[in-house]
Nucleic acid binder design. Structure first.
Lengths: 202, 202
DNA sequence: CGTTATTAATTGAGCGTTCAATTAACAACG
DNA sequence: CGTTGTTAATTGAACGCTCAATTAATAACG
């Protein structure tokens, strides 16, 4: 059955199966058997398409990173948005349904803890962390003086990641994620408003 | 060598060795051999004192939780502090030298990802998360109306956890932690000040 | 000498990787 | 249109390794 398109399909199926397996068993107890079993294939296929378990793990992380990137692009590219609206879009991109899903939250957390000991994963994690900051900074600079914009961007990045983390670990993730999104946007308003107030008094 | 005090000492030595091992190899590659080797003992001792590897892991997490609790108590108990000062103390307690150390950041992250699949660890994590929020809420309620205080406490908890996470994963943790502490306090000032401004206009 | 503390060796389950064998699809050819 | 050769896709058993737990032996006290 030599089908050239098969490779692409199989790889995505295995990535999906990895997410499901991590959701069910955690990364620690995810084995090539739990993954290949979930995908309805045999264990050998993983080494064949990804060179080994580690290769599949990294491919899965890259997939999540690209999904996060696209979530923002869909909301912004081609459109002309006000800085405040664009900041809202950044928040929303980080709280999409996919990002809130159990499978993905568990996977992100597992990857983060692994990233501290794996230079390859650390690099990917760092790129992602920087991207959030850069995106925020771009919009804040259109609203605030540079120094204030830098601080606002750093604080907002922390708020988003912090809310995301606390929601993911919460016993009621659904409602916590929803409120997290609101409070993140409220936080941005506060930061901007605060500067306006200060300016009145100076 | 039956020394009654030995038990206590050995247990703490093994907990310390666990932290060192997690720092060096990550929780994933931390084995009873890397721990007992670091402690200068043999592997069997872990089962003897903790019933197994998992028991030692949980004891180590409990140790970190108690250290975090004490860091705040030392800064507040017995003293009469203004609400704003107390909020500063809460921030500082979450960014102590111990909490910033490589061994501890790696350990926390590993535990968090495990907590999503281990009810025992999840319970401990949840208690800790709630404690930060409760502590913040207590002081904010002395400064703001209830609704505003609740939101401020949630946002501040997210800021602290978010900054902590981003600093821990940063390639320059030292300076990032330092700035994180500053910007966390700055946010608290902003929230309080912001409310004062609003009141003038209403 | 009995008790407790500790070690060192052993066990057995679980894991990722490898690879020879199998299957399925297409292509070339008569 | 059927036969055959070729190639890619896939399987799953076998292998070697790692690790947590167990065990029995040793050492240090009272």
């Amino acid at each position: 059955m030599p089908r050239p398109a098969m490779k692409h399909v199989r790889q995505q199926q295995l990535i999906d199966a990895t997410l499901i397996s991590v959701e069910r068993y955690g990364l620690q107890h995810t084995t090539i058997n739990t993954i290949s079993g979930t995908a309805g294939m045999s264990s050998g296929i993983i080494s064949h398409y990804f060179g080994g378990k580690q290769g599949l793990i990294e491919a899965t992380l890259k997939y999540l990173l690209s999904e996060l990137k696209q979530a923002l692009l869909i909301r912004t590219s081609g459109k002309t948005l006000s800085p405040v609206t664009r900041l809202s879009m950044i928040v929303e991109a980080n709280f999409t349904e996919l990002q809130r899903s159990n499978a993905v939250t568990k996977t992100w957390l597992s990857f983060w803890s692994q990233a501290m000991h794996d230079p390859g994963l650390a690099r990917l994690q760092h790129i992602n962390s920087q991207r959030l900051y850069s995106n925020l900074l771009f919009s804040f600079k259109q609203l605030l003086p540079d120094t204030a914009a830098v601080n606002a961007a750093k604080q907002t990045a922390a708020v988003i990641d912090g809310f995301w983390l606390r929601s993911a670990l919460s016993s009621t993730p659904e409602q916590d994620f929803k409120q997290a999104q609101m409070l993140s946007k409220a936080f941005i308003e506060t930061v901007i408003l605060q500067y306006g107030e200060n300016q009145c008094r100076h």
